[in-house]
Write a protein that binds this DNA or RNA. Structure first.
Lengths: 367, 367
DNA sequence: TTTAGCAGTCTAAGGTAGAGATTGCTAATT
DNA sequence: AATTAGCAATCTCTACCTTAGACTGCTAAA
């Protein structure tokens, strides 16, 4: 039993109205603001039917109607008006992105900030775990008498490096040779391959056994832990602006949920290949006791590779239209940023003289 | 005009009582719980005098008394009971610190977590800026055809490394030579020396000019920006547990203040060489519109060098005694951690087999 | 100097009444 | 058959009032 066109219109009116005011929507309100051609009584009848169908509820017998989570799902899928960014919103985006942002971390941080500022919601961004990165190069660099740095270069950039203790007998030459050996062994493999036994089988020369084991351990760390590390939250205080969290208890539950950043990962993951994913209400009941909310995320690609996700967390009643427009726009903006190389860090994000960090002008000065 | 002993006792009783219940303290309460030898009328008279002196106030004529910020200042300085950690608290500390934490960042993160968990307050930790670090070694490592990593080793550890674009003509050998050259030029200097012109004057061979400039620029970045980057907040939701922020408006103001992490830096800085610093109420009105609160911080040293600060942010009415005891204890705990080397990162924080990342057992296996 | 006793002041909680909003139903209308 | 007007019923929200309870400050006695 499908929705008639008129029911859809009324449903959309209720959702729009509720999103705007966070007040139960009455039949007369709809008549005045959306459908003046109908009488309030007709609208009332239709609303009763929509309630029957599970799209609306009332808080008490003499209150207006409120959309259910089901209604929102239908709304984002079919009913929601598509809008473009306003000039002001574009201005905000520009303000954040005309600085050079070349490190993925910074990029996602900026993205989160923009999203939060424009939507007035709490935003969240996270860097995809490195599992899918392909190892290009591994370098072992002697640092002090007893320590060395392990640098792992992947197609997505340089991983956060790791200091290891080494015995005092190790020379620079040994490090160089070992570097070549492990690059040879691991190069071309994905980090996740580490967990597939025998994906990487090469003869390990005895003298490099320890290096080999060390690298394995480090890579395992990346594929396990690293995924939890880089979550950026922006504007968590904004959750309090939403009337649904004006109740202190609910506000606290929500903030605690946000505090435990690690637990956010599963809900942020974009299940499908969809560009934008909606998780509304019970869609994301990963943790029980998790406060009721909606999460809208987009995945971000650079040079064809997904580098991370970003989106918003807020009450089920949120301005989905606005959220989608900004997420969409940013996703495209990010995609157009210089690809590949930009995954590497370039701390000179705000070089006062506008020059790039260059050891040699041959390539860069042309820019 | 000094405080009589009896006045001090009464003041302490008021502060203790108020810290415990966040309720105005009445004369009869003090009589019952603290000073049964006196009559409530006497206590009333003394309290009136303490109010006259600026240590107490009442919310309305028929309420009990509440301590002023001045009273808290006196309290932490003179009146506060010193206590030790309970067995349970020690257990919590142990739980966080028996994992190996060797990177400064992780160390402060753990510290913040412990503090927040034990005090039930929002805690904050930040890594001292690297200005005072002395450069030991600089390494330039070619990574891809056009990028290199600059690794700067200081006595406090390896700085977050920086990727730079290089021209394609640069060889590994050139990098090695350049590394040696810049290490020679900058080694032994503090990072802050960069800003003192001519502190570092060596003949710069023409072929290394660009490298030299690049390093300078990177170091300048560290001394400017880095200080803002590493602020860790833990348990910001806990602020809502405090009755003084049960008012939504106040809660929001506080959370917004915490959200803008950068602005926290000035209030966190430990002005004196005091181990523990108290900023109570107006002591820390750096930003106007900043919500009323108290900040207690301790500075943490490793091997004689201050690596960062950590402490709590909460209502003026907080359990200073508990806070001080935990900050004090942690400060000592941290100090006893393996010095110097421990500043370096060792990602293997949870190695299941308990083994260390080692390239060579000569040194480490003895541990 | 301390204390008992008491009037005065203020808050917090509970209860009531009335205004206002919105619905569902019924009967009339298109 | 679908729509609409009209109206009683339901429920919330606010304002107001009252009362109980908690302290204090003051006065006069110990």
């Amino acid at each position: 039993m499908g929705l008639t066109n008129r029911k859809e219109k009324i449903l959309q009116a209720v959702v729009d109205g509720y999103i705007e005011n966070c007040q139960p929507v009455s039949s007369s309100e709809i008549k005045e603001h959306h459908l003046p051609a109908l009488s309030s009584a007709t609208i009332r009848n239709e609303m009763a039917a929509l309630e029957e169908m599970g799209y609306l509820t009332q808080l008490h017998t003499s209150s207006g109607r409120v959309p259910t989570a089901e209604a929102y799902r239908l709304y984002v899928e079919k009913l929601m008006p598509r809008r473009k960014l306003t000039r002001q919103e574009l201005k905000i985006v520009k303000r954040y992105f005309n600085k050079k942002v070349t490190e993925i971390d910074d990029l996602l941080k900026s993205t989160a900030k923009v999203i939060s500022e424009i939507t007035n919601l709490t935003s969240v961004a996270y860097v995809q775990n490195a599992d899918d990165a392909t190892i290009i190069n591994i370098r072992i660099v002697r640092i002090t008498d007893t320590t060395a740095l392990i640098i792992i270069v992947t197609n997505l950039g340089v991983l956060k490096d790791t200091t290891v203790h080494i015995g005092s007998g190790v020379t620079d030459e040994y490090c160089d040779m070992a570097s070549r050996f492990v690059t040879d062994a691991f190069g071309g493999h994905k980090i996740s391959d580490i967990n597939k036994p025998k994906a990487i089988v090469k003869q390990v020369k005895k003298e490099y056994e320890r290096v080999f084991d060390t690298i394995i351990r480090i890579l395992k760390n990346y594929s396990h832990e690293e995924m939890f590390s880089d979550i950026v939250l922006e504007g968590s205080a904004k959750i309090l602006e939403q009337p649904e969290y004006s109740n202190l208890k609910k506000a606290k539950a929500m903030l605690e949920f946000l505090d435990a950043k690690e637990e956010l990962v599963p809900v942020l993951q974009n299940s499908d290949d969809m560009n934008i994913s909606f998780k509304i209400g019970k869609d994301n009941e990963i943790k029980d006791g998790m406060p009721e909310c909606a999460i809208v995320t987009a995945s971000y690609n650079i040079g064809g590779v997904t580098v991370g996700n970003a989106g918003v967390i807020g009450p089920i009643r949120m301005d989905y239209s606005k959220v989608v427009s900004i997420l969409d726009y940013l996703s495209k903006t990010v995609q157009m940023l210089p690809a590949g190389e930009s995954a590497n860090s370039d701390a000179d994000g705000e070089a006062p003289d506008g020059d790039d960090n260059s050891l040699n002008t041959e390539v860069d000065s042309a820019e």
